[in-house]
Nucleic acid binder design. Structure first.
Lengths: 141, 141
DNA sequence: TTAAATGCAAACGCTTTGCAATTGA
DNA sequence: TCAATTGCAAAGCGTTTGCATTTAA
């Protein structure tokens, strides 16, 4: 079922603004911040309004159509839920974001459940550190 | 070597304000936000100033005397580096914060290095999810 | 004595809000 | 038609900044 259908099904209106927010979200190759989304929206629809962007993102989040990711930038990034790619390695030297597959995290998820009874939600996980390139750079210096 | 000694050694002045920030940080049993710290400071030293708190925290961070932790609250929390307890499980239901020992994270750190060449800095790691109590609550409901 | 640090007020960036005007169903 | 949604402007929050004043060394 498409975002549009889900929106209507839950009794929400399918406004042009909402359709555009959804469109930009789907086009975004990477995680996008509210303000970045707003800028893109504004370029094709100059009447676009930042409040509406935030309100739409909030709604899509409630409907589990988008998920948030926190890369420690002091702002949150969004992407459409169905796209996957939920884990990230963020290099604190060059800012590079590496996608991390589920597989690597299974053992941790298991361990947390067994040892702490904690059901970890790893969908938004971002781990900071240093990427291989920057590690080499530092060694040389 | 104490915070005070390190500060002086690196050529920084040991002002009463800095001493108080360090004192509050040491007394804080849990991770404390800049504003919480400011409030406590203000109660014993009414001339305390929030800019000075931020500047002092920034300095202590540079000197590796305090570390930051991001619990996804939209603000950062601080604690003295020597105290340890760097990993956290944050329950998104009840807000409980569980300390997590290094041990559980070793396999992950290894895997990231081997598979991605990524040197993960797990000192600030906070994993959100659901604690055992809240898991039980939900099952009953 | 003097560079470093403080206090203040103002600005910052991101996000949320109240409210009147508009609009999808 | 009319509740839901928008646009606007203003305020919110946590944080940072410029600058004159004060102070540790």
């Amino acid at each position: 079922m498409s975002c549009h259908e889900i929106l209507r099904e839950k009794g929400h209106r399918l406004t042009p603004q909402r359709m555009l927010v959804i469109e930009v979200l789907h086009e975004a190759d990477k995680h996008i911040s509210a303000e970045e989304l707003y800028k893109q929206l504004h370029s094709r629809y100059p009447y676009a309004n930042i409040s509406t962007v935030y309100r739409t993102l909030e709604l899509l989040k409630e409907l589990n159509l988008v998920t948030e990711a926190d890369f420690g930038e002091g702002r949150v990034r969004y992407h459409v839920a169905e796209k996957g790619h939920h884990h990230h390695l963020v290099c604190h030297s060059c800012g590079k974001v590496i996608d991390l597959d589920d597989f690597t995290l299974y053992p941790l998820k298991d361990a947390l459940l067994k040892e702490y009874g904690f059901d970890a939600d790893l969908r938004h996980l971002a781990i900071s550190g240093k990427c291989s390139k920057c590690r080499k750079k530092k060694r040389r210096a």
